[in-house]
Amino acid sequence: MVATIATTMLNATVSGLNSTNYYEILDEIAKYNVQLNWAERLWAAWYLWMQNDVLATGILSFVMHEVVYFGRSLPWIIIDAIPYFHKYKIQKDKRPTFKEQWDCAMLVLLGHCTVELPQIWLFHPIATYFGMDYGVPFPSLTKMAIQIIIFFIIEDAWHYCFHRALHYGFLYKSIHKLHHTYSAPFGLTAEYASPIEVMLLGFGVVGTPILWVLFTNDLHLFTMYAWIFFRLLQAIDAHSGYDFPWSLRTFIPFWAGADHHDLHHEKFIGNYASSFRWLDKIFDTEAFPEAQKKRREKKMAQMRARKTQ
């Protein structure tokens, strides 16, 4: 299936090289395919060098996920250790200890290797079966941005519905309770969850692009990686426990942010959405004091109305 990732000229160029050296293949691609940018050359050389598309995508996906997840979590670990930033901590008296962060990281890593890795390996054959492209050149930045915004909106709705469901009775005790081990979350806790929850909520992240390509036949693996990258950043930052004056929610009022999700962990109810605030507002599940006050006032008014009847 290597022929699907590049032009006929690109394959012909490399086929006569008979090299097992990735950098030699990269040099040949750069020499005869000047229309490709550096990222596209690296990408094409990887698939041509691997000679196994499922393996190439599996390795690339797993490494990308681990680098982004733990790489983005590291700054929050450092921030927790610097007193200057503590004034921005939402729950100021609940900073994680090093042991808590270490234990959390080890459990998350275990989950990545045992629960997420098989799903990552199955992604390529499933997504390509439905029509996902992984060739070069990459799609335009405009197309990628539009698709990623759509994925954020769809996934937010999925997350809201199933996250809210996981807070009911048996589902909470048997599945979701593990994620609420820490009432004051920190970056690493974004994927600190039971295997069932990881698969259930993770389907919104991975399944949304698969459904998209099923109906549109228009999705590139590079767009998928960009989507996963931004969704991981969002999840980790929402669990960071810090709300800065320069946080994204300051500039985008409907963006959920850390203050939104931190309150969910503190109160154990409300603020169920992942990326945006509008579904909690529409369905009256906001956990902020102002929303709670309005609900109490509304309930009291209804009680008074019944008494006067």
Rank of each mutant, 00 (worst) to 15 (best):
K299T: 14
T7P: 00
P125I: 05
T216S: 15
D80H: 14
A165V: 09
P289F: 08
H167G: 05
V136S: 05
A127P: 00
D93P: 03
L10M: 12
L221H: 08
F123E: 01
E66P: 01
W227G: 10
W46Y: 10
D27Q: 13
T285P: 05
M300Y: 11
I148E: 00
C113E: 06
K307Q: 15
E286W: 01
F229G: 09
D259F: 00
E266G: 01
R164L: 10
W43E: 02
I77C: 10
Y84P: 02
R95F: 06
K99N: 13
R249I: 04
S194H: 09
G187Q: 00
L233P: 00
I120H: 04
Q51W: 01
V115T: 12
R249K: 13
G202A: 06
L201K: 05
T20D: 14
A287T: 05
K298A: 15
E197C: 03
P209N: 09
A105P: 00
E24L: 14
I82Q: 06
L188T: 07
Y168M: 12
Y134I: 02
M224I: 10
D156Y: 04
N18Y: 09
F222Y: 09
D218N: 15
Q292E: 15
Y134T: 03
K177Q: 12
T4H: 11
E290F: 11
A291E: 03
W255T: 12
A157G: 07
F62P: 00
P75Y: 12
L233E: 07
E155V: 02
R41A: 01
M132Y: 05
G58N: 07
R249Q: 15
D93T: 06
R231F: 08
I210A: 08
A273T: 03
L107C: 06
L117M: 10
Q302C: 11
F254P: 01
G202C: 04
F62Q: 08
F203T: 12
F123S: 05
E286H: 08
M144P: 00
D280A: 04
E100K: 07
F98W: 13
K298Y: 10
F85S: 04
L117H: 01
V67K: 08
K307L: 15
V115M: 05
L109I: 06
S61C: 09
P185F: 05
I153G: 00
Y172I: 06
L166E: 06
V68A: 10
M132K: 06
Y84M: 09
H112P: 00
S274Q: 10
A305K: 15
H260M: 07
A30Q: 11
H65V: 12
H163L: 07
F230E: 11
N18H: 14
H260N: 09
T308W: 08
T308M: 15
F123Q: 02
Y69W: 08
E286N: 13
L117S: 03
Q302P: 00
Y168D: 12
A238K: 02
M224N: 10
F151P: 01
M64C: 14
H112N: 14
Y69R: 13
P75V: 11
L232N: 10
